[in-house]
Amino acid sequence: MAYVAAKGGEEAISASIKYFFKFISDDPLIFLIDKIMSEGALYTEELARHCLQICGSDPLVAGNYLRAQRTAYKRVGYAELTSLEQFRILRRISSAFKDIPYGQILGPTNDYILKILNGTWNQTIQDDPKIKTTQLVQVENVPSGVEVVRQMGLLIPLEAKETKPFDITRKHPQPPYPRSAALQIMARGETGGMLLLAYTSMRGYGDVHPTIGDLRIGFLGVYFKHPLTEKKVKIGEIRATSCEVMGVSKTKNTLKFTSGYGFCFGFNETKAISMAILDNALNFPAYTVGERSIASNPEIVLEHIDSIESLGFCNHYKLPHYVTFMADLNVMKTNPTQKDTSNENL
């Protein structure tokens, strides 16, 4: 097991930038494909690419194709339980600590790239022969950066109320939403919508500054119990993103950390962070602004982040509605002016 030991920030950053450019030159569509697979809730790169082609690269419509495709398949079973330690890590950072066991592995990311259109700025790093990216980090069995805080006893544990996970594709969840149902809904949620809701939390309508305890992207093996031998067999691998955040809350008059978890198909850090913040807000409503918090309301968050639903309904208004409109016209023409009888202000 080898890992990049970052000696000094500058070297690590330059390596990370160079790595990123190589990464995207191998596949310039990678983040779009990952978004579509995640929101389409079907992990298939081949079909995702095909969907893009046939819909003019509209990510929401492409996601719709994938969801429909999913319906056509028979369910053969459930994957074996896995954990974030099973990730083969390409990139892992923890904002909570300066350095942690296994280090801050920057990996391929555009975080440190200046968004300047001046071609010469970033070119110098891309072409710098001194910076090597041949050592690709793929560490395994790395515990979450939040473990340290758990061991200090400073994290409020979430009670595990369910014995088996809810399956939202087989049974429609109703409030009070079991946590596994909430997480499934969010894992296939639309990135922009989830970002919006998480942003309301960040800006004051919620717990204003969570800390990322562990953010990782990498490869996760998918295991299945063989129907005949009943042994665990690896049937494939997916790209995935996992994020744990920590917020602050009061329990029994003591300040403690809270946690929230985000996970999605493909590499999509914005979505995983937003999801973790929303999970945190749903389980631990902000203890200062109370009911004005938007992200703490499961009926707002969980009912409005599915892009396939909202896309469809938004665009359905384009369908003919002249019968309903005729009915509206009639109501206006024939109803007398209603008297205002409200005196609730007294």
């Binding site: 920030g9 500058e10 950053i13 300066k98 200046l114």
Partner: peptide, 19 residues
């Protein structure tokens, strides 16, 4: 950034401003 000149944020900003 976080007290040190070598943190990622500090490095990028310093390079950019100087350039």
């Amino acid at each position: 950034d976080q007290g040190t000149d070598h943190s990622v944020n500090a490095v990028i900003l310093r390079k950019f401003i100087q350039s």
